[in-house]
Amino acid sequence: MAVGKEIRAQIGSINNTRKITRAMEKVAASKTRKAQDRMASSRPYAERIRQVIGHLANANPEYKHRYLTEREAKRVGYIVVSSDRGLCGGLNVNLFKAALKDIKQYADAGVSVDICAIGSKAVSFFKNYGGNVTAAVTGLGDAPEASRLVGSVKVMLDAFDAGKIDRLVVVSNKFVNTMTQKPVVEQLLPLQAEENAELSHHWDYLYEPDAVEILNDLLVRFIESQVYQAVVENIACEQAARMLAMKNATDNAGDIIGELQLVYNKARQAAITQEISEIVGGAAAV
């Protein structure tokens, strides 16, 4: 029957789309679980080193490391952690909005910004937006290696050491649960001491081999681990967001197919009714 051929074709094509989105949802669901495990297994290190640094910031060291001393912000470095691929809902857009809001505050105060983009979405976004991208890493995959991040983190740290940037901020998604991911802006350098009444009395560490060397190593390691943790967490966020986005897409495709099916059935019924009435009309005329 010739009726509704276009509608049938449309239903077919939406059905195919639904198959794809459903497959992507399933893939993302299994990757989310793995990414979450990875995030959980590297979290203790990030938390412990944060704790150590927290103690350190409360100590009264004989040598005040430059990462611990606040200075006037003339230029700020941003590490923006995004995903490599799209189709994950508003994840990256929300992240960039949060980053831009923060950047704008500095821009209003006449402070310029350097950006280290992690993930190809951030790279292409800041290329279009016109930020000064000084370092970029893309194609980290599902199981990122810390060694791949070290290079670009070093670019930012070197810039900090050379006084080109006076503050280092990391922008990434925090994994709240599979339904919720929250973009957060966090200042890494200079380190901010957490108020701790217990530790506020005057004390200092014994350092082996010597304070300058160990503080240098430890603080660099701290920054690296925080960035690594942010990247790992962002991957878990990406997969969870994609799973949700693809679930919605699959549901929407189902709704549209239902509606189209209704339109198609109505059109077919109308054609049949019309044909019958034509036949009946013709017979009566004879």
């Binding site: 350190l56 560490y205 350092y207 082996e208 060397e213 160990i214």
Partner: peptide, 19 residues
């Protein structure tokens, strides 16, 4: 094993930071 040889840590040790 610390930077300067073996070290044992019991409760009440002085604050120490080492590689």
């Amino acid at each position: 094993t610390g930077e300067y040889g073996e070290l044992g840590v019991h409760a009440g040790h002085a604050p120490l930071l080492t590689t």
